[in-house]
Amino acid sequence: MSEHLDLPSMRVGYGAADSTGADGVVEHLDTTWLTGDPPWPALFQRWLGEAVAAQIPEPNAMVLGTVDADGRPATRTVLCKGADADGVVFFTGYDSRKGRALAANPVASVTFPWIAMERQVHFRGRVVKVDPAETLAYWQARPRGSQLSAYASQQSEPIGSRADLVAAAAAVAAEFGGVDGQTPVPVPPHWGGYRLEPVSVEFWQGRADRLHNRVLTEDTGTGWTVQRLQP
C-alpha cells in the first residue's frame, strides 16, 4: 500500500446517547419485541421491509458462512430469495464450492448486514435443498439472461479467460434460440435452492458507547427461548 491506513481509528459512532441513531427506533431493542412461535419472523420481516424502504443497497444480501469437508470455513455474499417461519432461501450451483461444502456439512450461518441502519440479523442452522417445484418457480421468474448464464456456468471451476466465459454463455444462448429467443431454458441439473432452517436467530442494534443491544432466540427442541446478550 502507498500509505498506512489507521484501521483502529475507523470507529463508527452508533446511535447518539440522547437520540435514536440511524435506525429511527426510540426504544431499545428488547426481548419483548420477539413474539410468536417461532419468535423471530415478525421482527425480521419488519426490519427487512424497513431496509427496503430506506433504499439500503441490496437489502436482501446476506453473508453465508459454510465449512467444507476439511473443516475450512468460507464466507461469501448471496441473495436471500425467500424468508418465512421455515427459514431463509437462496439459490446456487450444487457443484459450486458452497454446494460441495453444504453436501459435506449441511449447516451454515447467514448475516444480514444493514450497517447503515445500525442493524444486523444472524441466522444459524441446518441447510436442506428446497423442493424441486420451489426451484422451478423461482427459475421461471429469473430474467432469461440470468437463466442462460446459470446454465452455462460450471460455478467455482477455473476458466482460462473472460472471453472463454462469454463464449460459453453465447453457445448456450444459441442452443436455446438466443438471448431474445422463445425456447424455454430448463433448470440446470446442477442448480437449485437451499433453505437454512434456523436453530438460532440473533438481532443486533447498534447503540452509543458500544452498549449495543443483542437479543437471541434459540430452538431448544422443546420450544424457543428468547434472551438478551451482553454486547
Rank of each mutant, 00 (worst) to 15 (best):
L136A: 14
W33S: 07
R100D: 07
L136I: 12
Y94L: 10
D219L: 03
V226C: 05
Q55A: 11
H122D: 07
P188H: 13
G71K: 06
E202R: 06
A169Y: 11
E197I: 12
N60G: 01
G13T: 05
D30Y: 08
P186L: 01
P188K: 10
P113Y: 10
A74Q: 15
R11I: 15
T217D: 00
R97W: 14
A208H: 13
P143A: 03
D131A: 07
E58R: 08
E27L: 06
V199H: 02
P106A: 00
A74I: 11
P198H: 02
F91G: 00
N213L: 10
G65D: 01
V185N: 02
L29S: 07
S9I: 15
A61L: 08
T31K: 06
A208S: 14
Q205R: 04
P59M: 06
G71S: 05
P158T: 10
M10L: 15
G71V: 05
V201W: 00
Q155I: 09
D86L: 04
A163Y: 11
V179A: 14
G87V: 11
M62G: 03
D164E: 14
V226N: 07
T75H: 05
T35Y: 02
D37W: 06
H4F: 14
D18E: 06
G15R: 13
D70G: 07
Q120I: 08
D95C: 11
M1E: 10
V187L: 15
S96I: 08
F44A: 12
A168I: 13
A16I: 12
A174C: 12
G125H: 09
D30K: 04
P231V: 07
N60Q: 07
P186T: 00
G221M: 00
E218P: 00
E118Q: 12
Y138R: 13
H4E: 12
D209A: 13
E3W: 09
L5H: 15
R228K: 09
Q120R: 12
G193Q: 12
A69T: 03
P143S: 02
